[in-house]
């Protein structure tokens, strides 16, 4: 098998553009998904079951249906409800955020519930209200425990952003497919894309490890 470096060189600028969009999609979705996930997670652990119910439904839907179905639904059906013309980048960020939020909500819930009950009691007994106790005592400790599962979720999110190629968002995988279409070659585009995804996910793991070590209290 001969490996055609020349077409890789030719496509390099496109891969670069695609990679930048992939990083953009991932960062935006991680940020929105994390904030949304925290709210959904806090919603689900509310004592009032009636108020918690919508959050449970949300998680059930987004965890229980394929991301591909969600991305097509949002791109072709949901976004056009609000905009004249659908927008693949917007649809991709929306879908990835909403989907990630469902998983992140469960990570937050597990993290918060893993903190010993005595921590909340000690905080409340000092006169802190519930919100202060959450903010200063429970969440900082829960967050430390949530870094490994959050890292997993973020890595999954980076990889799943490749599905945005199917709604023609010009990210990394989109250019891989374009290259295959132009030259009828499969090894070059997909190996190149795989290597770039690997670099992205490894960099993220590295950053999260660093963060985890910085938060150590020993």
């Amino acid at each position: 098998m001969d490996f055609r470096w020349d077409i890789l060189v030719e496509y390099a600028p496109f891969f670069l553009k695609g990679t930048i969009l992939t990083i953009g999609l991932s960062i935006a979705s991680i940020l929105i998904g994390t904030i949304l996930g925290l709210l959904v997670g806090l919603g689900k652990i509310m004592k009032n079951k009636l108020l918690a119910w919508p959050f449970t439904i949300y998680i059930t839907f987004f965890r229980g249906t394929p991301l591909l179905v969600q991305i097509l639904l949002i791109h072709f059906a949901v976004v056009p409800l609000f905009l004249d013309k659908t927008n693949p980048i917007l649809a991709a960020i929306l879908t990835l955020s909403l989907n990630a939020a469902a998983y992140i909500a469960e990570i937050f819930r597990a993290g918060i519930q893993s903190i010993d009950r005595g921590q909340m009691e000690a905080a409340r007994s000092l006169g802190l209200n519930h919100v202060q106790a959450m903010r200063f005592i429970i969440l900082p400790q829960a967050f430390k425990r949530m870094i490994p599962p959050l890292g997993n979720e973020f890595i999954v999110l980076i990889k799943e952003s490749s599905l945005a190629a199917l709604i023609a968002a010009p990210e990394l995988m989109y250019w891989g497919r374009a290259m295959q279409g132009q030259y009828f070659r499969v090894w070059e585009p997909y190996i190149a894309a795989a290597v770039i995804y690997l670099v992205l996910t490894l960099s993220l793991s590295f950053l999260l490890n660093l963060l985890e070590r910085r938060l150590a209290t020993e």
Binding site: E121, A123, R124, G127, P140, T217
Partner: peptide
């Protein structure tokens, strides 16, 4: 919350904030 500021509590398991 206001009443609790007047009442200190010490627990069997200390419950110090480890972070």
């Amino acid at each position: 919350n206001k009443v609790r500021t007047e009442v200190g509590m010490v627990f069997q398991q200390f419950n110090l904030f480890p972070h």
